[in-house]
Design a protein around this nucleic acid. Structure first.
Lengths: 144, 144
DNA sequence: ATAAACCTTGGAGTAAACTCTAGGGTCAAG
DNA sequence: CTTGACCCTAGAGTTTACTCCAAGGTTTAT
């Protein structure tokens, strides 16, 4: 049994974070002492471990809430239910990566076209590209 | 010369966005009519074009502000100044991509290890991985 | 004269995941 | 009996880039 400060220290997080997780329904302490203090059981601590690990992998608190709801009703859930959450997240991550790679290509093309020297920025190709309506430097040429 | 609604329509954005850009110091209309209406010049419109293109590439409004401040003082700036902004952004994007690729690998390993079938989630490898303190499934084995 | 369409300001609301503050109660040690 | 460390609640603040709202002034057309 731990008080909020003990649990927070153990997992190196803020006590406010724990109160926040409670408000969000992620981790409700299993009991409240007569003085109003939150009391966390070892099972609560274990759940916190799951939350923190899932967060480290990149799940949002909302994803984690779904995962935990499956966890508590494991017996009546299928592997499929769990895998769907993971695969959905994977699709989101893949989409985000592709979006960023598009930015990356644009930036690289911009950077490569610029001498980056002590010449006046008056004729800088980067500024010209941003001023030009066609953004020729950035457009990928899919035609030959 | 355009009124706020005309300029917004021309670039297919909200008038509130223009007022927001003004508040942020990105695009201040070159004059105000006697009735208090904002009046945008063609130069203002051109600047808005730059802002919107830079945004499409992935620059934040704060990045764009830096870029614009260089732009207005081009003559006294060097290519280097411009390139530094772009390269800095490129480094941020690269870092973000790598972070996401780590998530991607973790998620893929999690997903691949799960049958995803109608079996009970009781023995689901994904849930087991999240419950396990070692996260063995997720850890990359750099040793042989 | 009046309605529609435009403009103004100031301020609130949105998502995400906390973090911090104010003001106060609880508990153990000296 | 008071000091310090801990706990409580409610609510505001953080970041980014807007979007929406209320309450009102202006312009244009009928």
């Amino acid at each position: 049994m731990y008080r909020i400060g003990e649990l927070a220290k153990q997992y190196d997080i803020n006590t406010d974070t724990l109160r926040y997780y409670e408000k969000e329904g992620l981790l409700v302490p299993s009991s409240i002492a007569s003085n109003g203090y939150r009391i966390y059981s070892s099972a609560d601590a274990k759940t916190l471990g799951v939350i923190l690990r899932a967060k480290a992998i990149g799940f949002s608190l909302s994803d984690i809430k779904t995962l935990l709801s499956i966890e508590v009703d494991k017996a009546n859930k299928e592997c499929l239910d769990v895998k769907l959450v993971v695969d959905d997240k994977l699709a989101q991550v893949n989409a985000k990566i592709e979006e960023l790679q598009t930015f990356q290509r644009s930036l690289k093309r911009l950077s490569d076209a610029c001498c980056g020297g002590h010449e006046s920025a008056q004729d800088c190709t980067i500024l010209q590209a941003l001023e030009s309506e066609s953004l020729t430097i950035l457009s990928e040429c899919h035609h030959d």
